[in-house]
């Protein structure tokens, strides 16, 4: 089922962040949300996640089970990367599966370190694996490549391509190259 957003408006005090925004997000496809800073991309994601209420408009078709990579990594600092992934798994998943995903994304040597000891780029990748392995019908990625160097970004992109095939995926990005590399629909948001 497609997600249909009609005339969505969100205000913070007197500041209108999203003004009568309408869009359709296709099911089982990748959709990029692009726009200048402050246009309400993250607010839109938070509304779709059910974390922020909206003032007016209609949203239909958002699946129940969601996974997300937030703009910040939102990891449990004192636990290692495996535990951080295990936290969101409601079904029984063998540690070897988690380890293989973390290794695939270049974290082989740092599996058992508390995430507080990992670099920003490594933490980002833990957050990505967590979102991929969580049981969900829709995946939200808010600037997923933030803090990654070119080589790591390439690796993460191929990991995402492999693991988001035929899955409704919403990606917030500033970079048109991300759209070219991953391909998908584009929704532009204005100020």
């Amino acid at each position: 089922m497609d997600i249909v957003i009609s005339e969505l408006t969100k205000k913070f005090a007197d500041n209108t962040v999203i003004d009568r925004f309408s869009a359709v997000i296709k099911e089982n496809q990748r959709t990029f949300i692009m726009g200048p800073s402050g246009c309400g991309k993250t607010t839109l994601i938070n509304i779709l996640l059910g974390l922020v209420p909206f003032d007016s408009g209609v949203i239909k078709g958002v699946p129940e089970r969601k996974s997300v990579v937030f703009q910040e990594d939102r990891l449990c600092e004192s636990f290692n990367s495996i535990s951080n992934v295990r936290l969101v798994l409601n079904r029984k998943v063998d540690d070897s599966v988690i380890i293989s995903h973390l290794e695939q994304i270049g974290l082989k040597d740092d599996l058992y370190k508390p995430v507080i000891e990992l670099s920003g780029g490594m933490r980002r990748r833990v957050a990505i694996v967590r979102a991929i392995l969580a049981e969900s019908e829709i995946l939200f990625l808010d600037e997923p490549f933030k803090g990654l160097d070119t080589e790591t970004k390439k690796n993460v992109m191929s990991y995402l391509l492999e693991n988001t095939r035929n899955k409704t995926t919403i990606i917030v990005t500033h970079d048109i190259e991300d759209v070219n590399a991953l391909s998908g629909n584009v929704i532009a948001m204005d100020m």
């Binding site: 996640l49 059910g50 089970r65 997300v68 937030f70 939102r74 600092e77 636990f79 936290l87 409601n90």
Partner: peptide, 24 residues
């Protein structure tokens, strides 16, 4: 609160929240 929002999205159980978020 941001960690709690994360657990809300992923529907993390109360027991796991206790172990991973509140106790630390």
């Amino acid at each position: 609160q941001k960690l709690l929002e994360m657990t809300q999205v992923y529907r993390v159980s109360w027991l796991k929240k206790l172990k991973y978020i509140y106790l630390p």
